[in-house]
Design a protein around this nucleic acid. Structure first.
Length: 783
DNA sequence: CGTCAAGCCCTTTTT
DNA sequence: GGGCTTGACG
């Protein structure tokens, strides 16, 4: 048994696996076999006789947790792995929900709470701001939520925020601003509670409160989980730190794993000090460094290292690998964002032709908005793809509508969900009626649901409207009853039928069809819960839906497809071929980070994370001009590229406007540089700027960059020759017509069945029919 | 009550 | 450019 557990581990990994008792800090660089060390460590604990249920492992995604479970099962050769034989593993949020569902009544809350996602939070906040008569233009709901979330990640309740602010100002008075935010925070929490709802941060905070207020519950969990493991510790926030500290207090068997260079979530409160100061916190902690990289080639590693080396205050760490067989990093400089997308997708296809399946390739970008470009390029080229992030599946309107029904059925207090569906599909219950009911609620201090039940005694509503509301309430109650003996799948099917949801969702538009498919997909997720007890199936389903992360969806990768996602989502993953797109100042690093040292450092870490995902091939793309917010803007190349050693790179360019706006050579300030270290931060060129002037303007509204608002002129040397060729349109496909035989790298050989300009329809020999744009699709004529 | 057009602001990043 | 809110009208 122990042979298997230590098999193939290097010395440091072995130490990590052996050191079972006491606090342990594992600094694990990218690709250093960290998951391997952690799984073997847990397997070792179990092999040594520690009961699995005494072990807790907190991971960053559910996907990571599931992978570890599988690996441990294999290591221990468990024949029938059930929950009893495996440790509790999951994200902070899922572990906390588990605790709360069990024990939250000990702090006087109802265990049927719902979890509000960003959408719900925003709606709720809008409501709060409206009630407080704050102009949403002055303080946007999103901003308010941002502040509150920040407080919550520091584990401050409204009172503590106020106290803190009073302390830190010399006058002893909390500033007006703080007082206001505290009021909003307070009110927001009250409303959440009225709805019997929690946001993501509350899940953590309520567990902390539970542990602090009810010592015997804390004691029980301390006794249960005597061996604690936390992965991605560099991205934990203060609240999560508190939670873990409470649990670890008694037995002090706490193993944390992470890499300060990969800390990329400061924006949501992640506190790098948690990992940096672990050894001060736990004086006798064993410290282990994993520096051998098993993933990437030396070239990739050297480039990534050169980029991250520019960050100050890093712990000493030098990654190395035995893979010295690598290729150079490829830097693609493209004309514009469309060319970038086209070329990136093409390079993925080329790689596939060379034997790298699409599943092993990824395109990474800084912001979700960039995904559309690559999606379009994939569609045009006929490359199968999957996008993570962006408009999330569970956030789509039709999906949320169905979920809102389930929430309403499950939790009568959830007024947000109730309001969402009271007129969906249309029941002729309009805003006037609803406003009247809400007024009644505040008069009588009752919940929305109670008002619906008492609809008869509310004045100012026409009788037919009252009747429709009565019918609606009856419908909900009927399903509330059904929930007790019917699983979530059957229940929802019945509900959809009874409410005539299909016709409503389809609504005769072209998107209607695909929206209904989304509902179908939701139903198929429910099927997984069919076998559970009716009530359990209901609760578990809603929970999963609330807590799945984007990356979790990568688990079912049955079909071969190119992955598109943000750089943030790629942490912890690896691909043979990695493409990082949009490496331009203002895009990556993002414009909002350009004037802040800490934020720039985080952007750099993000670059490091992206680069170190690559096993074999790393490509970096930048576009010389880019359409943004409706006008074209020319950005200098990302500063991160300056740090990559030229001898390790190969440069490629589409050569139409070669060299224009290349940072060092082509852009000069006509007035002396400002005190910022990024003098050419976002440049904005309008269409008629070809004469050679560009307006420089910072797009950030923060006052610390005031000097930049004065629209200093920049001089730009354009390559006029290149501009003249700008509208040059390449057409390589004159000879392709109906009847031509072609080959496509994904679909194989086929015949063109029709052509309209650039667009062709192809009947492949495999039976598949596809439509392509000739200018982009990798079609090859065969004779 | 629902639809359409004009106008607004926008983009970090996520559980 | 585009998605979303707002306001006028049928």
């Amino acid at each position: 048994m122990s042979d298997l557990i230590f098999d193939g581990l290097n010395i440091e990994q072995k130490r990590a696996v052996e050191t079972l008792e006491g606090p342990v800090l594992i600094l694990a660089g990218a690709g250093s076999g960290k998951t391997r060390a952690l799984t073997h460590r847990i397997a070792h604990l179990i092999a040594r006789g520690v009961p699995p249920w005494q072990i807790l492992a907190v991971t960053f995604t559910n996907k990571a947790a599931n992978e570890m479970k599988t690996r441990i099962t294999n290591l221990l050769k468990l024949s029938d792995p059930n929950q009893k034989q495996l440790p509790v593993m999951g994200t902070f949020h899922s572990v906390c929900v588990r605790i709360l569902r069990r024990d939250i009544e000990r702090i006087g809350r109802n265990r049927d709470f719902v979890i509000y996602d960003m959408d719900d939070q925003e709606k709720l906040m809008k409501e709060v701001l409206r009630e407080m008569q704050i102009d949403p233009k002055e303080l946007k709901p999103k901003t308010a939520i941002g502040h509150i979330s920040r407080f919550k990640s520091e584990a401050f309740n409204p009172k503590e925020v106020a106290a803190q602010a009073t302390h830190s100002t010399s006058s002893g008075q909390a500033s007006e601003w703080t007082a206001r935010v505290v009021k909003i925070y307070d009110r927001y929490q009250m409303t959440l509670r009225q709805h019997n709802a929690m946001d993501f941060d509350d899940l953590i905070l309520e567990v902390i409160r539970l542990f602090r207020e009810v010592p015997d519950v804390l004691d029980r969990y301390q006794e249960t989980w005597r061996y604690l493991n936390v992965d991605e510790y560099q991205d934990t926030n203060h609240a999560q730190y508190l939670l873990i500290s409470l649990l670890a207090e008694k037995y002090r068997n706490l193993c944390v794993i992470g890499d300060p260079d990969q800390s990329i979530y400061a924006f949501r409160g992640a506190d790098i000090r948690n990992i940096m100061q672990f050894q001060q916190e736990y004086k006798n902690a064993a410290a282990i460094k994993l520096e051998r990289n098993y993933r990437s080639t030396q070239q990739i590693l050297d480039c990534a290292d050169a980029v991250i080396a520019a960050n100050p205050g890093r712990p000493e760490k030098k990654m190395w690998t035995e893979r010295v067989d690598g290729e150079k990093i490829v830097l693609h400089e493209m004309r514009d964002e469309k060319e970038e997308a086209r070329e990136a997708v093409k390079s993925a296809m080329d790689a596939m032709a060379q034997g790298i399946p699409l599943n092993d390739q990824v395109i990474l970008y800084r912001t979700n908005a960039q995904s559309r470009l690559f999606e379009e390029a994939c569609m045009k080229a006929g490359v199968p793809y999957r996008i993570l992030g962006g408009v999330k599946f569970y956030a789509r309107r039709e999906v949320k509508d169905v979920l809102a029904y389930l929430h309403t059925i499950h939790n009568p207090a959830d007024a947000l969900s109730l309001l969402r569906i009271i007129n969906v599909p249309s029941r002729k219950i309009g805003t006037t009626t609803i406003e009247r009911i809400q007024m009644y609620c505040s008069e009588k201090q009752c919940s929305l649901w109670e008002a619906l039940k008492n609809i008869r005694e509310i004045d100012g509503i026409a009788d037919p409207a009252k009747e429709r509301i009565r019918e609606f309430a009856e419908l909900i109650e009927k399903y509330r009853e059904r929930r007790l003996h019917m699983n979530v799948f059957d229940l929802t099917r019945g509900l959809l039928q009874e409410t005539k949801m299909e016709a409503w969702v389809k609504d005769d538009t072209s998107e209607g069809e695909s929206r209904w498919e989304n509902v179908g997909e939701l139903l198929s997720v429910m099927q997984k819960y069919e076998k559970l007890e009716p009530e359990q199936s209901f609760v578990n389903f809603l929970e999963e839906v609330a807590l799945v992360s984007e990356v979790d969806k990568l688990e079912d990768t049955r079909s071969d497809a190119l992955t598109l996602m943000t750089l943030h989502l790629c942490k912890g993953l690896e691909f043979r071929h990695v493409i990082i797109a949009g490496c331009e100042e203002g895009i990556f690093p993002h414009a909002n980070a350009l004037f802040n040292k800490e934020q720039l450092e985080e952007e750099r870490r993000l670059m490091y994370v992206g680069m170190t995902r690559a096993k074999d091939v790393l490509r970096i793309f930048a576009a010389r001009s880019r359409m943004q917010f409706g006008n074209t803007q020319a950005n200098p190349m990302s500063r991160f590229l300056d740090d990559i050693p030229p001898q390790l790179t190969e440069r490629k360019s589409d050569d139409l406007m070669s060299g224009v706006l290349w940072r060092q050579s082509s852009v000069m300030l006509s007035s002396p540089a400002t005190s910022f270290d990024t003098p050419f931060a976002p440049l904005r060129a309008t269409q008629d700027d070809t004469a050679g002037r560009i307006e420089a303007r910072s797009r950030s509204s923060k006052n610390r960059i005031e000097p930049f608002r004065q629209h200093q002129d920049l001089t730009v040397e354009f390559n006029q020759d290149a501009l003249a060729r700008d509208d040059f349109n390449q057409d390589r496909s004159d000879d392709l017509a109906e009847g031509s035989r072609i080959r496509h790298p994904v679909f194989g050989e086929g015949t063109i069945t029709g052509r309209r300009g650039d667009v062709v329809d192809v009947q492949f020999d495999s039976g598949e029919k596809k439509r392509f744009a000739l200018s982009i699709a990798p079609l090859q004529m065969i004779t």
